[in-house]
Design a protein around this nucleic acid. Structure first.
Ligand SMILES: [Zn+2]
Ligand SMILES: [Zn+2]
Ligand SMILES: [Zn+2]
Ligand SMILES: [Zn+2]
Lengths: 141, 141
DNA sequence: AGCTAAATGAAAATTGTTTCTAATTATAAA
DNA sequence: TTTATAATTAGAAACAATTTTCATTTAGCT
């Protein structure tokens, strides 16, 4: 069952443009995080001509509306990811250092950490970053 | 008891230069994370003349050697922090987005995650990154 | 003191991202 | 279906943080 990108975009009160649909389509067909530049390359294959700023803007808008996930990578570049299980609730990802495949992790220690931050430190959490790097089943051999 | 920066640097097989000692001294006297540019300003007060690349290089090298911590900030700029409890074993940090204070977190869910990755995904973990951002006790009001 | 590899400073380059403006396009009203 | 209008886009340029290059200096050894 294909995802209804058209109405997803409408929900955000954004116009349904071919560029936006294509960006969602491209991301949804990737198993890995992708950089804006990589999205741009794929967009050029489809449209011939497309500006990099358009890609950046749309990725940002779509992430703002929670249609895609924005990743602040330790390399301090932006990456975006379409998580097919985003209805399954909050989770993180295991990233293969070799083939870049991304796999879902069910466990998120945030509850424990929240207890610590709110209980002991008397602070409040705004966001958190949990990333696990390694070798996937295939790349491990 | 002051920390023996001199031998800390030696351990990394780096030369003990006045610049490196000063950088460690500056970071260790801060209770918050600081940007390379801020370190540079403080360095200029001490040395009069010092290049920004030197600051960047040394911060990176010292972080590489685990003498200081590199902060992955949501604003995607670099920050560094001297953790006074680094001998207390592996831990992560809570980072205040307002006042830049850093506090230790005891909890690290790596064991659970390892179970998931090795058991279910049949992969292996190489490294992990956990940082929690929010408002500290004081900044929460 | 003298040697050598490492560290530094200064300028310039690079990189990823954002801003600007004018032209185009999606949407909804007529 | 046309028209109005507000959002979207392309292209160029700007931008800021960080990194590279390379000539000079310095730390750590003999
Ligand atoms: Zn893999
Ligand atoms: Zn989480
Ligand atoms: Zn604070
Ligand atoms: Zn950990």
């Amino acid at each position: 069952m294909a995802i209804d990108f058209h109405s997803s975009i409408k929900t955000l009160n954004l116009k349904v443009t071919p560029k936006r649909l294509a960006i969602l389509d491209i991301l949804a067909s990737e198993m890995a995080y992708v950089s804006p530049e990589e999205v741009w390359r794929k967009m050029k294959e489809r449209f011939g001509k497309i500006g990099l700023p358009t890609v950046y803007r749309n990725l940002e808008d779509l992430a703002q509306g929670d249609l895609i996930i924005k990743i602040i990578h330790p390399d301090r570049k932006l990456y975006y990811y379409f998580c097919h299980n985003s209805e399954n609730g909050h989770h993180h990802h295991f990233i293969c250092l070799t083939c870049r495949k991304v796999e879902d992790l069910d466990f998120c220690g945030l509850e424990e950490i929240k207890k610590e931050v709110e209980g002991h430190l008397k602070g409040s959490i705004v966001s958190h970053l949990i990333q696990v790097y390694g070798l996937c089943r295939g790349c491990k051999q």
